[in-house]
């Protein structure tokens, strides 16, 4: 499994790997929003947590469809399915590699993105915390969606439609944590609920993804 994660990370940073695609997308959204809504810092600060979370979510979605599709196209998926690594492990490794190439970098640069949207300094740490807690769920749910649509050429549209409803709770609680953090309110409840969703997704989604892969390999 470690070998698989390492390979996926190596492939992601090489030509055509898609590393940075999500980051660049989030950056573009964050840069464009002030042009769209106007530069008043009061308005920007209020909508910043929501915009940042939506940007993170869409950035995650952008690279999801390649999670299994590339391995399916070149035959690696068949070979991985017959390898000693269980498919659940393959799905978990793929989800982790996806998070390491999209969710984690986004979390790390989120304070910079927050500054661009005039997020109050008090909100910065909570933005990082909310993304760190929430984005693993995005990758785990995405692995399931990608596994369901792996057999399809250009399955991106269906994948987005399948996955987006499951992203909504994470988005609500994540943005709530960041928003309450910025406003200096208590945020234990949304943080706990968001963390709970992430843990449940991490526990369940690899099994669901593996089951979907098995059916799709037939």
């Amino acid at each position: 499994m470690i070998a698989l994660i390492r390979r996926d990370l190596a492939l992601a940073v090489r030509a055509g790997g898609g590393f940075g695609l999500g980051l660049a997308f989030a950056l573009i959204v964050v840069v464009l929003v002030p042009f769209g809504v106007g530069p008043e810092t009061g308005v920007l600060a209020r909508i910043a947590p929501g915009i940042l979370w939506v940007a993170a979510l869409l950035a995650c979605l952008l690279t999801l469809d390649r999670m299994f599709a590339l391995d399916r196209e070149d035959g690696s998926l068949d070979l991985l399915a017959t390898a000693p690594v269980p498919l659940e492990g393959v799905a978990a490794a793929k989800a982790l590699a996806h998070w390491l190439t999209t969710g984690l970098p986004l979390t790390l640069i989120s304070p910079v993105l927050g500054i661009l949207l005039s997020l109050p300094p008090a909100g910065q740490p909570w933005l990082v915390v909310s993304l760190a807690v929430g984005t693993p769920a995005l990758s785990a749910i995405g692995a399931f969606g990608a596994a369901l649509t792996v057999g399809m050429k250009r399955g991106g549209l269906l994948l987005s439609l399948l996955v987006l409803p499951f992203y909504v709770p994470t988005l609500i609680f994540g943005a709530e944590v960041a928003g309450r953090g910025a406003a200096g309110l208590t945020l234990a409840t949304p943080l706990a609920l968001g963390g709970g969703i992430t843990l449940a997704c991490l526990g369940l989604m690899p099994f669901a993804a593996a089951a979907a892969l098995r059916v799709n390999l037939r």
């Binding site: 390979r7 492939l11 030509a15 070149d74 035959g75 068949d78 070979l79």
Partner: peptide, 8 residues
């Protein structure tokens, strides 16, 4: 299919 990664 050979399962070969082109960039490796």
């Amino acid at each position: 299919a050979d399962g070969v990664k082109a960039t490796m």
